[in-house]
Design a protein around this nucleic acid. Structure first.
Length: 812
RNA sequence: GCCGAAGUGGUGGAAUUGGUAGACACGCUAGCUUGAGGGGCUAGUGGAGGAAACUCUGUGUGGGUUCAAGUCCCGCCUUCGGCACCA
């Protein structure tokens, strides 16, 4: 007789909601724990089992921490601005608001039937004017701090989507969504000066309890490199060229220079003889797509300007070239080329027969660039009028050269970042409007008292053909008039990207209904930082970097109390289809949680997702495995509950056996420890071991059942509540104290010890716990098996005894 | 190319500071139960050999350290993720 999940689960879900069981306490004196999921975009296809994985994990932690006496903040909300609802609106004319509301209610239904313990009184939605009012407010704080500016930039315009994409949304020259071609077009855009926070964002990583690989990804994305700026004077010209290099030690080996085709001095440096070739080259470069230009293995191309620069150390006259392998957006857009010690320069020099000079010994620069920094010494690097660094190591030479450059005003120590400023505007309807007005005098922010700048109704969601936002077509919204009906300014018609709302939602959760402020300082101070943040690895860089950026700014403005928002981060892995590939509609391997819950119940699904394997690994779905968990719950139920639905008659007020007590306390200890460390799979297996044992017991101590009920509650809360009730309780189990475990009771009297001969297992023996070496070894030597190895004319040269583990005889 | 993560039975995966590899499940095999199906229960299950006791072998691969290596060190192979001309 199985348990009736279809009755039990809705019963307790209703109970939890009706009694507001999971409403967060307002008592700010309690120890707090803030456990957060990356809130979802409520898509039309609904929740799938992969989403649930992270939510189950955080729910278990939240329930566990409540039982450990913490005041737990565990909220859920909706990142509801975004392209799919807008695309749907373009196709069908349905307002994104309507689509969003429908999707949210479906998501919420699905989430609730999984038995999660969210405090729904804290639900937020980024598209709610009461929410985006404060998104706009934070933008104004950034603007006032000089971190938001407008600029005409070449943007990634995708005609198919009719949208401008961020660099991050373009993959290999195609849109990330849909894979449509993307072109570079100049447009006026809002940009956030995230580069100003590059160092801060890099340093902040050190103290975070994040997976190392995520920290590494962010570090690489920020891409700090240390080196020097070096000025090169140009022959017969008042101009000079400044380059950035990480290898000032190789300055003597700089035998030519390259500037990017977009470099501002291209015109000045091109001599009349070379004008035609240069113009041709630049024309050709313009026609190349981004994809072609960043193709690594392509042939390098370039053209000579006709001008020469002077190497500041060797005093050599070196030719200045133009080539598109130099990026205008990194460093100064110009480089000193050291073909002897840089692969790209070497390749280019070979192709155009430029001079290759060895300045670090150890390689053969006629065959390949020698880029090793650790070995070799500087050679061919001295000049009577400047300095000699011959014989120095690379790192000494770097410092010597920088000092020389600084003393002689030829350059300076310098740092560069790969990180670019953040393109922050989109030509879309379904996003936060900017609180910005354009007047004859320029840009002016909307007064904070006028927020929110509401998203107006619009007839047509399509952007205009020239790429302007659909908002630009609404005259009465765009034109801001004074009381006399004079136009005093025009509204900004771009909207913010989807990242905006998720940059600070975790702060809003601390005080979601506040109409006066974005958050109350007391609430923020109490709840922040987020103690545990679980979400997918796909947000490793963008969301997590952007949110950290805003948070750092807010911290500098004194608006938040912690420098970093997310203390501990953990990534749940993907759940693949049962064929081992990514779940997708086209493969037909999608598992719908609704079906699973219908057939096996939410508790089974929760338990299975935790049992599948380590939380952070990808693993294939297997319905058979799920059935195993369903069987386990039934076994548990049938062990504790009789056929008639009352508590099992085996459960009595008795003293449990020593063996049972040992397993019990081991389980209490292991489950608690494993939850703390997010090792849910091993916690579940320990529970299985315990229940397998109880199943074989003739009678079961009621005292232990009470504690067992508590430790299964985070995993399978519906069953736990039901049994808790059968035990005679009338309250919820959710706030019961987590059982204490007694380490002394986990210890057994006897242990099985391995007996090895020369490291090979030959026998096992049961010994008293903590037996001394002499007795243990003697007992082992009595074994017939062992004697056959020791009495054959061989002698024991060494004996290793690891108490309670093994004995190893080394025999020769 | 660079950076990061990972390779353990037929499958998902366990394995404190190096100390009985394969816990716990799935699957499979046999038996019991049932009118059948389903379900439940019992036993077995890394591979090879053997009737059995047992023996050999075994954590991607080749070395090394050690009484002892899935675990530590060095080299290589494969898979996945990220970056990709960043000077």
């Amino acid at each position: 007789m199985g348990y009736l999940h279809q009755t039990i689960e809705p019963k307790w879900q209703d109970y939890w909601i009706k009694n507001q069981v999971f409403k967060t306490s307002e008592d700010l004196k309690l120890p707090k724990y803030y456990v957060l999921d990356m809130f979802p975009y409520p898509s039309g296809s609904g929740l799938h089992v992969g989403h649930a994985l992270g939510y189950v994990a955080t729910d278990i932690v939240a329930r566990f921490k409540r039982m450990k006496g913490f005041n737990v903040l565990h909220p859920m909300g909706w990142d509801a601005f975004g392209l799919p609802a807008e695309q749907y609106a373009i196709k069908t004319g349905t307002h994104p608001k309507i689509t969003t509301a429908e999707n949210v209610s479906n998501f919420k239904r699905q989430i609730n039937q999984l038995g999660f313990s969210y405090d729904w009184s804290k639900e937020i939605n980024t598209t709610d004017p009461n929410y985006y009012k404060w998104t706009q407010w934070i933008f104004l704080q950034l603007y006032n701090k000089g971190l938001a500016y407008e600029e005409e930039v070449a943007v990634n315009w995708c005609p198919e989507l009719r949208a401008v994409l961020a660099n991050e949304e373009v993959v290999n020259g195609k849109s990330e969504i849909g894979g449509h071609p993307v072109y570079r077009t100049p447009m006026k855009q809002w940009i956030l000066r995230i580069t100003e926070y590059a160092e801060s964002l890099l340093n902040g990583l050190d103290d975070l309890d994040w997976p190392e690989n995520i920290k590494e990804l962010q570090k690489n994305w920020i891409g700090k490199s240390e080196g020097a700026e070096v000025h090169f004077s140009v022959l017969n010209s008042p101009q000079s060229l400044t380059v950035f290099t990480t290898r000032p030690d190789t300055l003597f080996g700089a035998t030519y220079m390259v500037i990017a085709p977009e470099h501002p001095l291209v015109q000045d440096l091109t001599t009349d003889d070379n004008k035609k070739d240069v113009l041709d080259y630049i024309e050709k470069t313009k026609l190349k797509s981004d994809f072609d230009r960043t193709e690594v293995n392509k042939d390098k191309t370039g053209v000579f300007t006709g001008s020469y620069a002077v190497n500041p150390l060797s005093k050599e006259h070196i030719p200045i070239w133009i080539a598109d392998y130099v990026l205008s957006t990194y460093g100064t857009g110009a480089i000193m080329a050291v073909p002897g010690h840089d692969e790209r320069d070497w390749e280019f020099a070979k192709k155009y027969q430029l001079k290759i000079l060895e300045v670090v010994s150890g390689g053969d620069v006629s065959k390949a660039a020698y880029i090793t920094k650790e070995a070799g010494e500087i050679v061919n690097s001295s000049h009577k009028d400047t300095l000699s660094i011959d014989g120095l190591t690379v790192s000494d030479a770097i410092n010597t050269v920088i000092s020389f450059l600084e003393k002689n005003r030829l350059g300076r120590r310098s740092v560069n970042y790969k990180l670019r400023d953040w393109l922050f505007s989109r030509q879309r309807y379904w996003g936060e409007p900017f609180p910005i007005m354009h007047t004859d005098q320029g840009v002016s922010p909307i007064d904070e008292s006028q927020l929110p700048v509401r998203l107006p109704e619009v007839d047509n969601y399509k952007p205009s053909d020239d790429g302007k936002s659909p908002l630009s077509t609404i005259k009465q919204w765009v034109e801001i008039k004074d009381v006399n009906d004079n136009i005093i300014g025009l509204r900004e018609t771009n909207t913010m990207p989807q990242w905006a709302g998720s940059c600070w939602y975790y702060l809003r959760f601390t005080d979601p209904q506040n109409l006066q402020e974005a958050w109350d300082k007391k609430a923020e101070n109490y709840w922040m930082p987020v103690d545990l943040y679980i979400g997918g690895q796909e947000h490793a860089v963008l969301h997590l970097l952007y949110a950290r950026f805003w948070h750092h700014v807010l911290f500098d403005l004194g608006l938040v109390s912690t420098k970093e928002p997310f203390q501990k981060l953990y990534n749940q892995g993907m759940i693949l289809g049962d064929d081992g590939s990514k779940m997708s509609k086209s493969r037909g391997n999608v598992i719908n949680p609704d079906d699973i819950i219908e057939e096996y119940g939410a508790d089974s699904m929760r338990l299975y997702e935790m049992f599948m394997g380590p939380l952070n690994k990808s693993k294939p779905w297997n319905t058979k495995g799920l059935q195993g968990c369903y069987r386990f719950i039934n076994k548990l139920w049938n062990t504790l509950v009789d056929e008639d639905g009352t508590l099992s008659s085996k459960i009595k007020e008795i003293q449990a056996s020593k063996e049972t007590l040992s397993i019990h306390h081991t389980t209490v200890e292991k489950v608690g420890h494993d939850i703390e460390n997010l090792h849910f799979n091993t916690a579940v297996s320990q529970l299985m071991i315990y229940v397998n044992h109880l199943q074989d017991c003739e009678e079961i101590s009621k005292e232990l059942v009470i504690d067992l009920c508590k430790i299964i509650a985070p995993f399978i809360p519906h069953v736990a509540e039901e049994i808790w009730q059968l035990l005679g309780n009338t309250n919820t189990i959710s706030y019961e104290k987590w059982p204490k475990f007694d380490a002394s009771l986990t210890v057994k009297d006897e242990v099985e010890v391995a007996i090895q001969v020369n490291g090979k297992l030959r026998a096992t023996i049961t010994l008293d716990i903590d037996l001394d070496q002499e007795n243990a070894v003697n007992a082992a030597l009595q074994l017939e098996k062992i004697q056959s190895y020791t009495n054959n004319g061989q002698s024991i040269v060494k004996t290793i005894y690891v108490p309670n583990r093994l004995i190893n005889f080394v025999v020769r």
